[in-house]
Design a protein around this nucleic acid. Structure first.
Lengths: 121, 121
DNA sequence: CGGTTAATTAACTTTATGGTTAAATATAGG
DNA sequence: CCTATATTTAACCATAAAGTTAATTAACCG
């Protein structure tokens, strides 16, 4: 599936890759910098592969500098993915809305009742 | 990888599953409702499998009602995923900042130069 | 040139994904 | 009980993903 959103989400669906993005969010880093935290868990080629997934998804841009390959975060796909999620925001805020609505009916009733009772915690 | 974020992103990394979520965002639907738009592209069992992925990721809640299995959207994992993305917001807003900064220097220079030239395309 | 550092490619293995068809299960209803 | 509807399970296949080790490429440096 070559659609962009799928590629983006797919690239994000791995903790190693997310950690690499987190590292890049603190500044450029070349491959071995990015690899260092993971070299006890996996080999360098494995990291190269993860990086390639991030590149193909357009989340990372790799440049050349002598033997180094400095990488940088490219947030455009993240922006698009976040925009997709935005459609659903109402759903995770809904519970708050419901609480809000509930509180309004409660206070409305209290007003209708007059000031029989004091405020509750 | 049983970590929640990975499961969420992984579940989102498929257009069929995203479409199913979109459908559920418009209200409850049972399996055959969810399947209908895809039955020319894939079989019912394939849909069941996608649904299972969404369930395991906690994005969909399936209940029972006679032979039907009404499904509902559960946005909690989306909320968490969106929260993760939020860390990167500054990066996709940064380019605007840079453009902004650039435009400011440009207009500053134009002012400094006086009105020697007209606007460029 | 020859060695060292940085990163990639090749070849291969294992496991996960996404799909198929055919059979099974669950429930309503005559 | 029998049948139709709704959905799942089983068994299987093809391809992709994630990792490995060993070999290769690229560039600097003395």
């Amino acid at each position: 599936m070559p659609d962009t959103l799928s590629q983006t989400f797919s690239a994000l669906a791995d903790p190693t890759r997310r950690a690499m993005l987190a590292r890049l969010s603190k500044g450029r880093a070349n491959v071995s910098d990015l690899a260092r935290p993971f070299l006890r868990e996996m080999s360098l080629p494995a990291v190269t592969k993860h990086l390639k997934v991030l590149e193909k998804a357009g989340l990372v841009t790799k440049t050349r500098e002598a033997q180094r390959r400095p990488c940088a975060l490219n947030s455009r796909p993240l922006k698009d993915a976040a925009a997709w999620m935005e459609h659903y925001r109402q759903f995770w805020e809904e519970s708050l809305d419901r609480l809000d609505a509930y509180l309004k009916t409660v206070t409305a009733k209290q007003k209708a009742q007059g000031k029989k009772r004091g405020r509750q915690s």
